[in-house]
Design a binder for these strands. Sequence first.
DNA 1: TTGAAAGCGCTACCAT
DNA 2: ATGGTAGCGCTTTCAA
Lengths: 338, 338
Amino acid sequence: MDKKNITIYDVAKEAGVSASTVSRVISGNVGVSKDAEERVRKAIEKYHFVPNAMAKGLKEKRSKVIGVIVPDIKNPYFSSLFYELQVRAIQEDFMVFLCNTYEDPQIELRMLRTLMNKQVEAMVIIGGALDYKSCENAYINELQTISKKIPLVITTHTMLLDCIKVVNDDKKCMELLVTHLAQKGYQKIALIGGNNNVVPSYDRRRFFLQYIEENRLTTQKEWMIDGGFSIESGIKLMQELFHSKEKPEVVCGINDLVALGALKYAHEHNMRIPEDIGVMGCDGIALGETSYPSLSTIATDYSAFGEEIVNSILSALHNKAYKRLMTIDMKLIARRST
Amino acid sequence: MDKKNITIYDVAKEAGVSASTVSRVISGNVGVSKDAEERVRKAIEKYHFVPNAMAKGLKEKRSKVIGVIVPDIKNPYFSSLFYELQVRAIQEDFMVFLCNTYEDPQIELRMLRTLMNKQVEAMVIIGGALDYKSCENAYINELQTISKKIPLVITTHTMLLDCIKVVNDDKKCMELLVTHLAQKGYQKIALIGGNNNVVPSYDRRRFFLQYIEENRLTTQKEWMIDGGFSIESGIKLMQELFHSKEKPEVVCGINDLVALGALKYAHEHNMRIPEDIGVMGCDGIALGETSYPSLSTIATDYSAFGEEIVNSILSALHNKAYKRLMTIDMKLIARRST
DNA sequence: TTGAAAGCGCTACCAT
DNA sequence: ATGGTAGCGCTTTCAA
């Protein structure tokens, strides 16, 4: 390892100018003579000089970093969102600190604190503890304090916390889902997966029921079973579902992963889709395009979602006007599974 | 937004001690009287004081941050690796800066530089430009310079760059793959997907051929077609494959995603798997467990991979001995698709 | 046990 | 156009 750190002073000396001039050349701002600039650039080149963003940040009180906390980056929903969010962030020359919490509130809290002391300029918390009805007050208070210092964006629709919210339109999601199914002629509809202690999940079930009634369709208690958000959950829940007396005509997953699990179960039991049983998901993850059969779903616009998150951060940072609550539109993607 | 930043000086004044004492309390190191400590803690609490990691880092010349660059975090291979890598990193109190390059060498370079000026203590580049035979010299030189300053870990087996390498054992991978297929009684074997300009992909094909010969199995030029690493590639390539005169008995994907695409194509054309055609992948991503049928594969140990990366970084940072080249073992997971 | 002070690398204000 | 200098918030000697 090379020992000494090269600083602007080393560069300045080599170029025969002052540190100020080097700083000016780097930031490319104001008047530096062609000649001086030339020499500085040469010196930078020669020494492989890299400016120290910590020193700069300390001085300027800006880090150009956004902190992002997600429960599980292996989940395509979260990775897609991160992916799109970073697209917009780097356009604005912001880096993104990604923290995975492994769905552990302890780690979530720890990440949050570390991010704060790393001086992130804004914080994004996707899902996580806030999604849970059991979310601790102390945690919410800590977030509230943070939100007073820097822009805080969450993706949960909660009244308990005053901050920027960018959320999926779960109501519209369920409306589109049920309407599509009705249109396809399905009458008996199941909804599997989720967790009633998780707000968005609870909401989807609630709205699902509402639209089932409005459309005069039917569901049953035995057809609405929760038990997780993964493909594995989907498989397990389908098994349960197919133990019930009467069978539904179509099974919806609380999200696409659960629906993909339902697909797998159906295949393993030689059911044809959609002939024997329809399957539908929500979220619009890419896997739904390439499953067999391709999965009908109500899709989030990940690009818009990520962009909106960063845009509201930028607005807040620049004291521009912005909506404290943004709802991301969802739309029907009818494919082969219904 | 609250304006003023609280510093240790504010805390010190409130507690009636000096900044040094506050610093000592925070770092929890040396002798501070019970009484003073108590007052400092109260003051910290009262002001919601958060230490500024930039100032600390500037002073200490450490950031406790590892930079990680991946081509596409939506790819389960990369997200799994990141996930596991962070597990080990946070154990050591390191944060991880994740950068997605969107498979764009320009962005990769830019991320690299930004990470350097953010003073990351180590850099991990997973895949990316280095995987390509066409990788620019200038880029390699820049990496070489970086590797002299901080520990640099790459996942490509290249001679062009002297740094820490943690790589998959592609030879063993292909040995296990072909042997398994031979054992299952397959004779005619196809390998689809990949890109001959990508080193690991090229290697896998090379070793594939080697083991095909050693095991006296057969393949054909028409059965070894490249064209990408995604599920979509797999679908497309299967289509091509099934245009060739003679059909193979089993199709291997250069990775699991391609194999998953093959599965989809097979379903759509009413082929039974493995009865009509076998399918096999490499990498061992989680999706292979939940596909229908579940996918036989040669799996990487992501946890070991991530751990090894961080461990070698830590060793390098502490000037401990470590291997400059670590090979991650791969093992056969025989499931239902063969 | 405690405090004063220097300095990490940078920027920006104030002179010249 | 250029340079000197103060100071961002912290740690760490050195003295007391």
